[in-house]
Design a protein around this nucleic acid. Structure first.
Length: 562
RNA sequence: UGGGGCGUCGCCAAAUGGUAAGGCAGCGGCCUUUGGAGCCGCCAUUUGCAGGUUCGAAUCCUGCCGCCCCAACCA
């Protein structure tokens, strides 16, 4: 368990923590994951969740979940629920330590008053436009607010008035008195409280003023006894402010320490909440959990195992450099986990009828198939076989190229777990399209092995036509048609990169009957085709399958080369 | 432009002054009742560039170059 923490050096954050422990700066470790409930969690959040949770576990510390709900205009209970479900799904347990920044509103208000008393904060009547005018630029200092010199009494009274609803939104704000000449922009007398006229998802209309992130975050960390406040790299510039509030308010040591790391991006998708929201609201997808989305909810629905996400995060590591992971690396981890765990079944996506002419008419027979070749412990099952079967249209070529090992006229091929068969006749309709194949089978090859030891290169999957159950199969592909969806001509946005073929729905797909009794949450492989999971809409009598990811397809590469 | 962060293979990443790990992708081959999986091999004479220090530098110093972040009453 403590491997990462004690064995190797670990990432730079774990190194810092180990040093803090060794130096006696901390007796125990406490981390937190602080999402704002204004959207669904996506793959980019997974690193932060696993980092915070993993560190707590490895160092015997605690991991809190804290909703940073300081902006009621943007936040919603729906997201509070979804975020918890997603974190639980990832396997990260906050063990009941569920907090909301809004829980601390009374205390934060008191801290703000204390700042006023210490002449470190003042009520400012400047509008945001006026503030903008005085903010200065990257190279020039800003100008001080004319309200910066108000007395403690006046500030206290004014702030109390704001709290009691005597100011409209935008009329007044509470600002920290720091330094308008600072080259660190967040230090230029930042607003720390503003009036918001909106219903808060937890506190309703109780508050008229809400703290800003910079003020609320460090203090919430301190209140919870967080030792290491891990956040993403764009907050580096805010660290002086984080420390400033804690110092001004004389919070006891050891104070929480902010450490930044880089989140990762992933190719072939967009990841900002704003863009994901647009996809949902403008109907490019069917919802936050549409399996084409990069949200955790979507991955869950698509059948991605949470273990794959954990492994990906570990593989990518924790650093401070900006990174964009190729989708292939993500897919690799998904396949790696699924290869070990997924049950195998057979299903024929694009069926072509095959009649085995020398096979007896009737009910056919039951053949043995292995449930998971990676794990014999998962046993075997019976698969019905009969005179009429479906095979994949792609598995037949009337005039095959050199390296095509599947079915073609006169060539012997193996039906997985069944028999060696040879195509004897190609039946076509009036337009010349192949509509049926006639074959003969070798009765001596039951199970797929020839007693005379002859080699058969190709093995294809099949489903007995009279025994088949049918399913709806949803084949998901990349939502976008390029690695960087934002790489579009001027005047266009990422909607121009949408892949029109990102979803293909197949109906009446014949699958082997055993699939209907597979466990509800099971991940499974349709042999030679890909990994799938049941959609939540799926019912035993109306199966709906989502393709999680396809199998690696080296034949596609060979075929492409000609 | 002031401040800050970051530059090691196509994409990630290790290295903590001792002579450039590993993964993904790619490319060859073996094996295979999934063209899956597995196995073997190839894939950075060099770490953004230029100098310097040192017996020795991706690591230390100096100077350049490039990319990214910051001017919400968002987080």
């Amino acid at each position: 368990m403590a491997d990462d923490a004690t064995a190797g050096r670990g990432d730079f954050i774990r190194q810092i923590i180990r040093e803090d422990l060794e130096a006696g700066r901390h007796q125990r470790i406490a981390t937190r994951f602080p999402p704002e409930p204004n959207g669904y969690l996506h793959i980019g959040h997974a690193t932060a969740i696993h980092l915070n949770h993993g560190i707590a576990q490895e160092f015997g510390g605690t991991f809190n979940l804290r909703f940073d709900d300081t902006n009621p205009a943007a936040e919603d209970e729906e997201f509070v629920e979804s975020i918890q479900a997603d974190i639980r799904w990832l396997g990260c347990d906050w063990e009941g330590r569920l907090h909301f920044t809004s829980d601390y509103f009374p205390q934060l208000y008191e801290y703000a008053c204390e700042l006023i008393r210490r002449e470190k904060a003042f009520v400012c009547d400047l509008s945001s436009e006026e503030m903008f005018e005085r903010r200065g630029t990257l190279t020039e200092a800003g100008g001080e607010s004319p309200f910066r010199g108000r007395s403690v009494e006046e500030n206290l009274a004014l702030f109390a008035g704001m709290k009691n609803g005597e100011s409209k939104a935008g009329e007044r704000s509470l600002r920290a008195r720091i330094d308008m000449g600072s080259s660190v922009l967040p230090m230029r007398d930042p607003v720390i409280y503003r009036v918001v006229e909106a219903n808060h998802h937890r506190t309703g209309a109780e508050w008229c003023v809400y703290p800003m992130y910079d003020f609320a975050h460090c203090l919430s960390d301190a209140i919870e006894g967080i030792t290491h406040s891990l956040c993403s790299i764009e907050f580096v510039d805010h660290r002086p402010l984080y420390d400033w509030f804690l110092e001004q308010l004389d919070l006891p040591e050891p104070r929480p320490r902010q450490i930044e790391f880089a989140k990762f991006f992933i190719t072939d998708t967009v990841l900002s909440k704003r863009n994901l929201r647009r996809l949902v609201e403008e109907g490019a997808v069917e919802g936050w959990d549409d399996p084409r989305m990069p949200t955790l909810a979507a991955f869950r629905r698509r059948g991605v195992p949470p273990k794959a996400i954990e492994n990906l995060c570990r593989d990518v590591g924790i650093t401070r450099s900006a990174k964009t992971i190729q989708l292939a690396q993500f897919d690799h981890h998904v396949r790696a986990v699924l290869n070990e765990e997924a049950l195998r079944f057979m299903g024929v996506l694009r069926p072509l009828k095959v009649v085995i002419e020398n096979y007896p008419e009737g009910d056919g027979e039951q053949l043995d198939a292995v449930n998971n070749p990676q794990d014999p412990g998962q046993g075997t099952r019976k698969v019905p076989f009969s005179r009429e079967i479906w095979i994949e249209r792609d598995d037949f070529l009337e005039d095959p190229p050199k390296k095509f090992f599947r079915m073609s006229p006169g060539r012997e091929v193996r039906l997985r777990y069944a028999y060696l068969v040879t195509c004897t006749e190609v039946v076509k309709d009036a337009s010349g399209e192949v509509v049926e194949l006639r074959c003969t089978y070798d009765p001596e090859t039951r199970g797929g092995d020839a007693p005379d030891g002859r080699k058969v290169k190709g093995t294809i999957h099949w489903v007995s036509a009279p025994h088949a159950t049918t399913a709806e199969v949803r084949l998901y592909d990349h939502l976008f048609d390029r690695e960087d969806p934002n790489d579009v001509p001027d005047g266009q946005d990422f909607f121009a990169s949408l892949n029109p073929d990102s979803l293909e729905t197949l109906h009446d797909v014949p699958v082997e009957p055993a699939l209907a009794s597979a466990p509800e949450g099971a991940a499974f492989q349709l042999e030679r085709t890909g990994y799938f999971a049941f959609d939540p809409e799926s019912k035993p009598e109306a199966l709906v399958l989502n393709r999680t990811v396809g199998l690696r397809d080296t034949w596609a590469k060979v075929a492409k080369k000609g």
